[in-house]
Design a protein around this nucleic acid. Structure first.
Lengths: 128, 128
DNA sequence: CATAAAGGTTCCAGTCACAGGAGGGTCAAG
DNA sequence: CTTGACCCTCCTGTGACTGGAACCTTTATG
């Protein structure tokens, strides 16, 4: 398969797939014309990576997860630890955003949003 | 004031303050020794910026907000629009993270996390 | 058969908002 | 006089791609 078809099948942009090759996630064969030639296995790996990224795993975590995926002798504890760490990080990000949201929505609600210059949003940002 | 004191007062790293000068947020005077010399007003701007960044506004939005802050003839509608856009963006990010969290917490909860290789997390990522 | 569109290739630069570090100058205390 | 704490500029790196230039190959069409 050429990169375009794999892109369509996996939902990953061709640019991203080339990048994933660069960083060693896949090593597709090459045709006589220099075009990448992806196997089913390559494509399957890319689907795996797309899902892992979609769950917020970093590239380095994806590398770990992919290695575990291909290691039949893995311990599920190793997988769980990586996932748990990511989950904790996601919770932290959510909490940060909720805090921002709390303050910001309050300020927005109290701003008249008309032609006058008085604005509680700027007052809050500039309070001494 | 030297950059160190301003850093302490504002909570912003000196590196960040220099960066904010680079991008035109502040233009502190310079002493004969080449050191930056910050006025109260410079410091106040930096506090403003630190708060705005803390509420998730992008650098470009901060630029807009700072300009509005210093424009006595502003319309609060302009401020509100910027803030509302940021709020919408924050909500989108929260929703994305909540979706990840939902899937991931479910998978983590179902993973034994022991020495055996069977793992619902990898099974989900690798499903065909 | 010529050509044009669509797809492929590499390589370099840009994104965002800084952080780290090298290599140096300046200032206050002992 | 030296030591250590500041300060300066300039360059590079971060994460995970994305955009674009310049070029080659394949496929469809007149």
């Amino acid at each position: 398969m050429n990169i375009g078809e794999v892109s369509k099948n996996t939902g990953l942009p061709a640019k991203t797939i080339r990048y994933y090759e660069d960083i060693g996630f896949v090593t597709p064969a090459r045709g006589d014309n220099g075009y990448r030639s992806f196997s089913e296995k390559d494509q399957h790996k890319l689907v795996f990576l797309g899902r892992a990224r979609g769950l917020g795993f970093s590239i380095e975590d994806c590398r770990t997860l992919l290695a575990l995926y291909e290691d039949q002798g893995r311990a599920s504890a190793d997988v769980k630890r990586v996932a748990q760490k990511n989950l904790t990080e996601i919770d932290r990000k959510i909490a940060d955003l909720q805090a921002m949201r709390g303050t910001l929505s309050h300020l927005v609600a109290n701003c008249a949003g008309d032609g006058r210059p008085d604005c509680p949003i700027l007052e809050d940002l500039g309070r001494s």
